[in-house]
């Protein structure tokens, strides 16, 4: 038989101090069902004045507890007054959603970020690459040399471009029959070269010269 004013917000809402926001919302809904102005449950149980006070306290309680910051402050006050135990407080162990696709990949996968942007400027200043790029016609062998000069693995490129490693191999070994079509080859080449060259179009043209004849 505690008067409303002497109950703390958790008591008035009939919840434990560890209640989650979901529970708080439900408790408030339930309380309105019980104490609302047109509620049959508490009809005649409270006087008009009592009901008005109770409802205003309920609203305050709900608004305080449903907000993270104000709840934290309020909890602190209750703990300081020794009304509730710190251990019984609600702690939010929020969990990030887990992307399902991640579960299928190996743990030591090379992240996309492992091809740094600086590669492009490095490629431009590398003497080996410059020498190769001076040629009129380029072969798979040349592409491989350039890639190795930059120290990028084929797996790394496959990861980044989402092109199957077999296709990349075929490109570097000039085995055109293993590739689906000329159109595909062009597109693969573009993705491959975009990893470390600024002027991919001209390289593609010089590579394709041998097929277009």
């Amino acid at each position: 038989m505690k008067p409303f004013e002497e109950q703390h917000y958790y008591e008035i809402l009939d919840i434990s101090p560890g209640a989650s926001p979901f529970e708080i919302r439900n408790a408030y809904k339930m309380a309105l069902q019980m104490y609302g102005n047109s509620s049959p449950v508490s009809y005649s149980f409270f006087s008009k004045d009592e009901r008005a006070r109770l409802l205003s306290i309920l609203e305050k309680a709900f608004l305080t507890l449903i907000d993270k910051e104000t709840r934290l402050k309020y909890d602190k006050k209750l703990v300081e007054q020794g009304i509730i135990d710190e251990e019984s407080l609600y702690c939010e162990d929020s969990r990030e959603p887990i992307p399902i696709i991640d579960l299928k990949r190996s743990k030591e996968r090379i992240s996309v970020a492992s091809i740094p942007k600086s590669l492009k400027s490095e490629a431009a200043s590398n003497p080996v690459i410059r020498e190769i790029l001076a040629q009129d016609v380029l072969t798979g062998e040349d592409l491989k040399k350039m890639r190795e000069a930059l120290g990028v693995s084929l797996e790394n490129i496959s990861e980044y471009t989402k092109i199957r490693i077999g296709f990349l191999n075929s490109i570097e070994e000039d085995q055109f029959d293993d590739l689906p079509s000329k159109f595909h080859l062009r597109s693969f080449l573009k993705s491959y070269l975009d990893c470390f060259h600024t002027d991919s179009e001209s390289i593609i043209d010089r590579y394709m010269k041998r097929i277009d004849g």
């Binding site: 038989m1 449950v41 149980f45």
Partner: peptide
């Protein structure tokens, strides 16, 4: 009618009349 009416009535009496 609300089937929880009776249960809620008991709750009020317990809480506010002891």
């Amino acid at each position: 009618d609300n089937p929880r009416l009776g249960m809620l009535m008991c709750k009020i009496v317990n809480k506010y009349l002891g």
